[in-house]
């Protein structure tokens, strides 16, 4: 019998701890599929972050270095400079990258650091229990913005893919979603492009995933997917914001 679906080699054979309907599992799988697609499992080192994705090393069958909260881009810089032949990526949530680690992210991009950042934006702090994130939508109630985010108090949700597309060192910056099969297929295509940018030594590559958090959004999985479509995508448009041509080597 022909096998049409299997676990990527780069993922371990263990169940995810993620909540039902959470997109982390899907994004993990996409990343693992790309690692397999380019046969990178034996030459990949990941800088993990702090948040729901902290347990990466339990799921990915690759070398992983834990980073202090927000500092994954700096840790990845140290790894990549020491191991230029390895594929090096970070996997960071919105609190990690867009709040605490924004300096590390922007400067890694500006140096044209030849690493890939996988950014998971679910508009909320997941692991600590649903507090406001830098990407929390206007009006969205969280445990620390109980009356809804008000730009007069808390400012606006930050658009990281656009922001990082502005630095000269950024070779690739895009935003994708995985809330529908169509978006998921497109997300994989975009993610592959980001991988290829690093494999061609073109510099910094960045992919923002719009992700759901049904638990902290207090929604069902279906409602959460719908929210990504109805609320997030209009504010955080999907697309490629920066793409150096293949021949444009640093």
């Amino acid at each position: 019998m022909k096998q049409v679906f299997k676990r990527p080699n780069s993922l371990r054979d263990v169940p995810f701890h993620f909540c039902p309907g959470c997109h982390h599992g899907i994004i993990h799988r996409l990343v693992a599929e790309c690692i397999d697609a380019y046969d990178l499992r034996e030459k990949t080192v990941c800088a993990a972050s702090v948040g729901c994705s902290v347990f990466m090393y339990d799921y990915f069958d690759i070398d992983v270095c834990e980073s202090p909260h927000g500092r994954a881009a700096a840790v990845a810089t140290g790894i990549k400079r020491a191991l230029p032949e390895c594929f090096v990526f970070t996997y960071q949530g919105d609190g990690d990258l867009a709040a605490l680690g924004i300096a590390e992210g922007v400067h890694a991009a500006n140096r044209g650091e030849n690493i890939t950042i996988i950014f998971v934006n679910n508009t909320v702090y997941g692991m600590t229990g649903g507090q406001m994130a830098p990407t929390t939508m206007l009006g969205q109630a969280t445990t620390t913005s109980p009356f809804g985010r008000d730009f007069r108090r808390e400012g606006y949700p930050i658009r990281m893919a656009e922001l990082l597309s502005m630095t000269e060192g950024t070779a690739f910056s895009a935003r994708v979603a995985v809330n529908t099969p169509k978006n998921l297929m497109q997300a994989k295509k975009v993610l592959k492009k980001a991988f290829e940018v690093q494999l061609r030594n073109q510099g910094f590559s960045f992919v923002e995933f719009l992700s759901s958090c049904p638990t902290n959004w207090k929604m069902s999985a279906e409602q959460a997917n719908q929210r990504v479509h109805d609320e997030m995508i209009p504010y955080f448009p999907l697309g490629v914001f920066k793409e150096k041509s293949e021949t444009d080597i640093l």
């Binding site: 840790v75 810089t77 140290g78 922007v106 400067h107």
Partner: peptide, 22 residues
């Protein structure tokens, strides 16, 4: 490799990353 990092925080974490590779 010499990197003038954006901060002391970034520097120590780059050290952590390079040290992690041995």
């Amino acid at each position: 490799t010499f990197i003038q990092a954006e901060s002391e925080i970034a520097s120590i974490n780059m050290l952590l990353g390079a040290g992690a590779t041995g």
